[in-house]
């Protein structure tokens, strides 16, 4: 069953509010007579009671999947398609509807099973993430997994910790820089431009690179 875009948007919104923010119910309010709402009720994803609605178990599953698709779409736009961040949310909203079941797992694998969206919110795990341990080649990976002496480009920094960010900025390991890992034991040594740096595994795990 393919949902309408509008129904997916509603589910996503509910996924954020009811699952992530753990609110019990949501005020039906202005959505009351919305076509998409009826669609969701008919599929028994939603229950409406006295103007409040809540998600059924199936609905929760579907909502989680909507949130996942939206955030994966954002990651895809930023990391691979190199969209400017200001427009990411809005475009992500359109893009996500193209990522149907199964497709989202492919994108997730392509991106190296990212844990957060570019805004730092968690991406719900999919089946593919659980299988990630035996997953084949990845395009995007943390710096410490990079093959030695192979060129790569820094894709993004996965951290919102200011002090770590500050250190990585000081090194100049910023997105778009070309990087070659020279050594991975006992510490990581890599080259950016003409300069070489050494970092520990902790810092190397925040720098994600894209193999070219």
């Amino acid at each position: 069953m393919i949902l309408s875009d509008r129904a997916e948007e509603i589910l996503e919104r509910l996924g954020v509010e009811l699952i992530e923010q753990k609110k019990e119910v949501h005020d039906a309010g202005i959505l009351k007579d919305d076509e998409a709402l009826k669609e969701l009720v008919n599929l028994s994803y939603l229950k409406i009671k006295a103007g409040q609605f809540s998600l059924t178990d199936e609905g929760k599953e579907e909502a989680r999947s909507c949130v996942r698709r939206h955030r994966l779409a954002e990651r895809l736009l930023v990391d691979i398609l190199d969209a400017k961040k200001g427009i990411v949310h809005e475009r992500g909203c359109k893009f996500e509807h193209l990522l149907h079941k199964g497709l989202d797992d492919n994108i997730c694998t392509l991106l190296g099973h990212p844990k957060t969206c570019p805004h730092g919110r968690p991406i719900p795990e999919g089946e593919c993430c659980k299988d990630a341990k035996r997953a084949p080649k990845k395009l995007i990976m943390p710096l410490f997994e990079l093959e030695l002496n192979k060129k790569a480009k820094i894709a993004y920094l996965q951290t919102h910790n200011r002090s770590i960010l500050q250190k990585i900025i000081a090194i100049g390991a910023l997105p778009h820089s070309e990087v070659v890992l020279l050594q991975n034991f006992p510490s990581y040594v890599f080259q950016i431009g003409k300069a070489q740096f050494t970092v520990d595994q902790e810092l190397a795990s925040h720098i994600y690179v894209r193999v070219s």
Partner: peptide, 11 residues
């Protein structure tokens, strides 16, 4: 906090 390590390796 655990210490973190980063240094430039000059030629």
């Amino acid at each position: 906090e655990r210490p973190s390590f980063y240094m430039e390796v000059p030629p």
